[in-house]
Computed example of a mutant assay.
Amino acid sequence: MRSQQHRKDGDRNEQAHSRLAFQAAQERGDEHISVVAQRSAKSQDLPHVRTAGNQSLRDIAGEAREVIERSIEDPDISPALIASTLGISVRTLHRSFSTSNESVMSLVRRRRMQKAHEDLVQSDDIAKVSEIAARWLFSDASHFIRNFKSIYGATPAAYLKSLENSRDS
């Protein structure tokens, strides 16, 4: 009895999450995600959910990457939201990334860091590091600086200085 109630609660939570994903996509004006999320929300009432058997894991990972690119600025992006948008389970989403060297969220972090890097190079202003970190949803500037240094081998300030020196040469 308890497991049936737990399952029902989980189904209700999944339905609510799908509806929220649909509403959020509509508010952002993202028609593709909106349509997919709406379909996902409606399919929650049906026993059929897309599985890897219906589609290759590589295709699912590709679709997930597209959703991530379109939703990269969404602070609520998560494996659950991505899976719901695609109409698949979170487990299937993670399985689709199992052959790559990164998880779903590590891809999100990497893409956000690449976008932050582009913004930093374009702004050419070290004073904007905190703004860039916040824009790309890093918890704070020090977290951003540590991650930046681990990827690019230098702090943002040192990186910009080396770019400036290489331009002057």
Rank of each mutant, 00 (worst) to 15 (best):
L46C: 11
R2I: 13
A116E: 03
Q38N: 09
D140R: 12
R109D: 11
H17F: 04
P75N: 07
I68C: 04
V104E: 01
Q38K: 13
G87V: 07
T99P: 03
L81D: 02
R112F: 00
L46P: 01
S142M: 11
L163F: 05
Q122W: 05
G62P: 06
R110K: 15
P79L: 03
I82V: 15
I151F: 00
P47R: 11
A41F: 12
A64S: 14
T85K: 02
S166F: 10
L46M: 14
R167Q: 11
A24W: 06
D140V: 06
R110V: 03
S142D: 14
G29N: 07
D30M: 10
W136N: 06
A24R: 12
H117G: 01
R70C: 05
I88W: 02
I72V: 13
R12F: 11
A61H: 09
Q44C: 15
L137A: 09
K42I: 12
A24D: 11
D74V: 04
E66S: 14
S169E: 11
E63G: 12
S130R: 05
G87N: 06
R110S: 12
A21H: 00
A83K: 01
S139A: 14
Q44G: 12
R12G: 02
A116G: 09
L120K: 01
A41C: 09
A127V: 07
E164V: 07
S34Y: 08
V67K: 01
A52Q: 07
E14Q: 12
S84I: 02
F22Y: 15
D59H: 04
I82R: 01
F138G: 00
S166E: 14
T85G: 05
S169C: 06
K149A: 13
S130F: 01
G153S: 07
R146C: 06
A83C: 06
I151M: 07
L81G: 01
M1I: 09
L86C: 08
R39N: 14
D76V: 08
P156G: 08
Q5D: 13
P79H: 02
S106T: 11
H32P: 05
A61V: 03
E27P: 00
S43H: 10
Q23R: 11
A158F: 02
A116F: 04
A16Y: 09
S130M: 03
S71G: 03
A127H: 13
S84G: 15
T92H: 08
E102K: 08
R95Q: 15
S169V: 10
A80R: 12
F138H: 02
S89T: 15
L20T: 11
D125P: 09
S106C: 03
T92F: 02
S34C: 15
D125C: 11
L120Y: 01
K42F: 06
H143L: 01
H94G: 05
I145C: 05
S100N: 08
G62Q: 14
Y159W: 14
